[in-house]
Design a protein around this nucleic acid. Structure first.
Lengths: 216, 216
DNA sequence: CATTGTGAACTCATTCACAGCG
DNA sequence: CGCTGTGAATGAGTTCACAATG
């Protein structure tokens, strides 16, 4: 990190969004982009773009803007997505299957290298991605063998904490949690929750609130 | 709304989380809960719990706490989840299928009442949920007929904006967007983005940052 | 007397405005 | 001259601390 240590979480989120937009800009043949244009594309504010990038260094050219290719490389480095990450998916239900076949992941270096379940009917089954469903009891060994650094929980809520515990025991300390529950983990472990129901609740609240206002 | 109009977004998110925890508390037989206990269960802070609730009214009993059943009802009203919402899913890929079978949705009043695609091979297919995949060209008619208020986009990024436009034309102004792109919509339309890749990017950044610190 | 409800203090994030520079 | 980089100003959200009260 070039400057301060206090980076807002929101900055990291936006960097990811800038990055995707830069890919599109490159694809469309752009070589340079101004903070104003990038902000516009990302539905943000130019000063914010500059400040976000400013936390990590000076990537622009005054009077010109940012090099589309170079800035991608810089952001990849900042986000640590300039390399592959191996993921293990725990819970081969509909959602787990969907993620295993999610093309966007592999295209971006997020490799699903193992899938686990505890259902005897599923264990051993061949997946479209070429993987075989493994017994959850093999988790520990497989994580070590396959160099898995990210665990993805796609089990029902009732199993999520137990799975998290298994992942922790196997020294996985980054979890993407799709189950509709908050798992508790020690400080050293990072959890990103993706909770569909919470998102729907927020949407409903806003929708209701908006229509309520309209009736006044 | 009982008090101010300036409710932080984060408050709404937390209310959804409190709500789910209250369901569990009720299931476990609790009748009352203090802000301290609820905060602990939700990995939050008691003052925050009280402030969040305080935006909407006085739901507690001093010296005692909150009635588990009553507070659920209050939060349901605040979030506008005290009724059913009809959703239409656009894009019957793996993710769309997963959502169509997602039991948590229907259990909470989020009803998937239609599924749309533009792939002739999929149109007309019977889904496990009992629905038939509809032609995207029927979107407008079906939304009106089935009273759909929430559109769920599970198409590839390339199709997302076009789908959003169709939804807007059909007067759907709440969208849950799973596609890895930011769609642009008029002010009147609400969008909640659920972007798996952004979440992974954040996780990688934190993971990398954490391990970097450890090596110092 | 335990716990809520809430103004005031504080911390964190965004936006402004302009100096600095290619 | 145009656009970046950034300190200073503003705004938003969280936590504190304690008065109010069932």
């Amino acid at each position: 990190m070039t400057k301060s240590d206090k980076i807002p979480d929101a900055t990291i989120t936006r960097l990811s969004i800038y990055y995707r937009q830069l890919e599109l800009l490159e694809f469309d043949g752009y070589r340079m982009v101004s903070s104003e244009k990038l902000a516009w594309l990302c539905q943000g504010n130019p000063a914010q773009v500059r400040k976000d990038l400013g936390y990590f260094g000076e990537f622009g050219i005054r009077g010109v803007g940012y090099d589309v290719i170079d800035l991608q490389a810089q952001i990849k480095k900042i986000l640590a997505i300039n390399r592959d990450w191996n993921m293990g998916i725990v819970g081969v239900g509909n959602l787990g299957l969907a993620l295993l076949q999610h093309h966007n992941f592999s295209a971006r270096g997020f490799k699903c290298v193992a899938a686990f379940d505890n259902d005897p009917d599923k264990i051993g089954a061949d997946l479209p991605s070429g993987l075989k469903v493994r017994d959850i009891r093999e988790l520990d060994a497989a994580i070590d063998e396959l160099d898995i650094e990210i665990g993805v929980i796609t089990t029902p809520a009732s199993a999520a904490q137990a799975v998290a515990n298994l992942l922790l025991k196997a020294n996985v300390n980054a979890i993407l949690n799709f189950s509709p529950t908050r798992i508790s983990v020690p400080e050293c472990c990072l959890v990103q929750n993706i909770d569909f129901t919470v998102m729907l609740d927020i949407l409903c609240h806003k929708l209701d609130h908006q229509t309520t206002l309209q009736h006044l």
